[in-house]
Design a binder for these strands. Structure first.
Lengths: 190, 190
DNA sequence: GTCTATACGTGGATAGAC
DNA sequence: GTCTATCCACGTATAGAC
């Protein structure tokens, strides 16, 4: 039980960055070792279950971040419009203006997606539900609000792919800006 | 030059299915061999450049399919509404109702994305441009039409991820149905 | 807790028979 | 054109010293 050279949280953070860049299959232990600054054996000390264990830790951490920076602000008692703004800001930071891939997407598309499908599903559902609540607080009927929340999360996922595919951040930016109109069903303000 | 046991096209088709299921990194030669019914050495006969070569062939084939079933119908001289309907039908078939992953997304998120980014970008741009033309034919101003086309393709990519993430086809279905309203900017008809 | 060293399977790729 | 056999690098994972 010697003092760790870095907190486990930091290790998980770095693992997350690596998975984002490389995908699950592409993130080899050698690369994860490089990314964390720990030797492979040390990684196994932290994560006895190996790579799958590391991925799960990353997902757990992400889930925490989402809870803190997305769900909680959405459930605060600020005016609904402000809550949306706060979430947009958090999302913008989290994906670094669209430059970073979405780990949820990475895991969904990976060959080993079955390992993580439950965790991923819960995260998506939680996000959508919290967003729908804000819609309701804005006077939208519950089922419609849910549908619109689902649609925006869908757009966001797509935007993170297309942004990288087109090599331009504009789609990401636009998707963030569209949030209020999507939730309010305000039509496409083009 | 003996007669091949199956046309090269069929081999590429099967490779494509494998890449969709497994991702680029996850598609090992052993699995590609299984998927095609050809031994590894035979695959190298068709694709001397190895896995990268196979992926490129798959992308080329997809590009052909898109040209034939998406771009061409969009540029036909049917009424714009019918052109959209035709594309939706093709897309529905192509992704088998949302069950199949999008190869474009797979390659974009893969660790080796740089190998394919040019091909992918061209395909996306071509699709968006053709879709925007239909918008123009419907009376939408060119720049607005382009933005809306871009938005729908974004939604489609997102839908293919979320559909798998939530394990329900409804998001995919909805995205297909939304095409006309997105292009026309008709607001969210929820 | 972190390391070096190592085991063992699998990855991509090639040689050469038929 | 397809195969079997094989090469070597790299993949995951573990043993054991400090």
């Amino acid at each position: 039980m010697r003092t760790p050279s870095q907190p486990k949280e930091d290790v998980i953070e770095k693992l997350g960055e690596a998975f984002r860049r490389l995908g699950y299959e592409g993130a080899t232990l050698a690369k994860l070792s490089l990314a964390t600054g720990l030797q492979k054996a040390s990684l196994y000390h932290y994560f006895p279950g190996g790579k799958e264990d590391m991925a799960r830790a990353v997902l757990d951490q992400i889930n925490g971040v989402i809870q803190e920076h997305v769900i909680q602000p959405l459930r605060s008692n600020s005016p609904p419009q402000d809550r949306l703004k706060q979430m947009v800001k958090a999302v913008d930071q989290f994906y670094d203006g669209g430059k970073l891939n979405c780990l949820i997407g990475i895991f969904i598309l990976s060959a080993s997606h079955k390992l993580f499908e439950n965790d991923v599903r819960l995260m998506l559902k939680g996000w959508i539900a919290a967003l729908a609540e804000v819609g309701v607080a804005m006077g939208v009927k519950a089922d419609v609000a849910h549908q619109r929340a689902q649609q925006w999360v869908t757009e966001l996922q797509g935007a993170l792919i297309i942004t990288r595919g087109l090599g331009s951040k504009s789609v990401f930016r636009r998707t963030l800006n569209r949030l209020p109109e999507v939730i309010l069903g305000a039509g496409n303000a083009n």
